[in-house]
């Protein structure tokens, strides 16, 4: 196995007395498609900023292709999405692609990039005049302009409609199939399930879970069952919240739970099963780990058994 493309070892970043990233250790080997999840303020952005050389760690090691990421040469194999709000509004689409392409030794020709991401007709438009979805597609396209070995995609499909999202997924899959390495952040469980081989969840600056998609899926209660009932027997939920006659049950297998509910014969009403985002599920789990006074404590999630220290949340 060759050296990892990204290596973090005990990487910590503080802003004043706020710890945004707290001793994170993480390797991204070549060819992997990694999904990075976590609520806002969890440290995802800080992690990406360290890897892309925007910031330096307060302590610990961060390496990109075996070098410090703040050396420009280390970033020659990196492709990244800008935040969609960050495109210079007065520049034309083609000009923005040209500027980025100019930094790489062998960029994809601009026309080809625009064509591949469905922006061919918009080449002469100023980016300020693009719709949200068009900006998002341009932002993702920019990550691939330099034929990177590693693509960091920060929420690539937020705000896209279903078709556009699936087109982008195809592009990411094709890139990955050709051997490209991807680190992807997303709010959508569906997206991570569709793309990622490995899932890393960060919360409060720490890596909470790191495993294959299957491992992570079975480790978290990703279904939320709501029901009204005077009293319920123990249905084997991973977490149960009770508010008067309203019950909220978290489970990884809603079918089994509903079967048990019906089988128990307890009277109930307003049954509602929803697929929680992975983040919500993790929040439920971490919240349970925090307040052990809850009706049931979290189980089965590696990492949550260690008591969470009083790391202040980053205001971002």
């Amino acid at each position: 196995m060759s050296a990892p493309l990204v290596r973090l070892a005990g990487a910590t970043r503080r802003y004043g007395d706020v710890t945004a990233l707290d001793g994170v250790t993480l390797d991204v080997p070549a060819g992997q498609l990694l999904g990075l999840l976590g609520p806002n303020g969890a440290g995802k952005s800080t992690l990406l900023q360290l890897v892309s050389g925007l910031r330096r760690p307060t302590s610990g090691v961060v390496e990109l292709f075996g070098r410090p990421p703040w050396e420009p040469a280390a970033r020659a194999g990196l492709g990244m999405t800008p935040q969609e709000t960050g495109l210079p509004p007065t520049l034309r689409v083609r000009e923005v692609v040209d500027v980025v392409a100019g930094h790489f030794p062998d960029p994809v020709p601009t026309a080809e990039v625009l064509e591949r991401f469905g922006l061919g007709d918009l080449a002469r438009r100023q980016t300020g005049g693009l719709s949200g979805g068009q900006k998002r597609r341009l932002a993702v396209a920019l990550a691939f302009v330099g034929r990177p070995r590693l693509a960091l995609l920060d929420e690539p499909t937020t705000g896209l409609d279903v078709d556009a999202r699936h087109d982008l997924w195809d592009a990411v899959r094709a890139y990955h199939r050709d051997g490209g390495t991807v680190v992807l952040t997303s709010h959508y469980l569906e997206e991570v399930e569709a793309l990622a081989e490995r899932v890393v969840v960060v919360d409060r600056g720490r890596v909470l879970v790191d495993g294959s998609l299957e491992e992570v899926r079975s480790a978290v209660p990703a279904r939320r069952v709501r029901v009204r009932a005077a009293a319920l027997p123990d249905l084997g939920a991973d977490r149960a919240l009770v508010d008067g006659d309203r019950h909220e049950l978290w489970t990884s297998d809603a079918d089994a739970l509903v079967r048990r509910l019906v089988g128990s014969g307890a009277p109930f009403a307003d049954l509602e099963v929803a697929s929680a985002s992975l983040e919500e599920a993790f929040l439920a789990v971490t919240a349970a780990a925090d307040d052990r006074s809850g009706s049931r404590s979290a189980t089965g999630v590696p990492g949550t058994s260690t008591p969470t220290t009083s790391t202040p949340e980053v205001a971002r």
């Binding site: 196995m1 060759s2 050296a3 493309l5 080997p29 070549a30 060819g31 292709f65 075996g66 420009p72 040469a73 280390a74 970033r75 020659a76 194999g77 930094h103 790489f104 030794p105 062998d106 034929r147 990177p148 070995r149 890139y175 050709d178 051997g179 490209g180 390495t181």
Partner: peptide, 16 residues
Amino acid sequence: MSPTPTTATPSDVTPA
């Protein structure tokens, strides 16, 4: 696993 997607192998990241 082939770590060479499009241009370079790990050893020849050309200093840009």
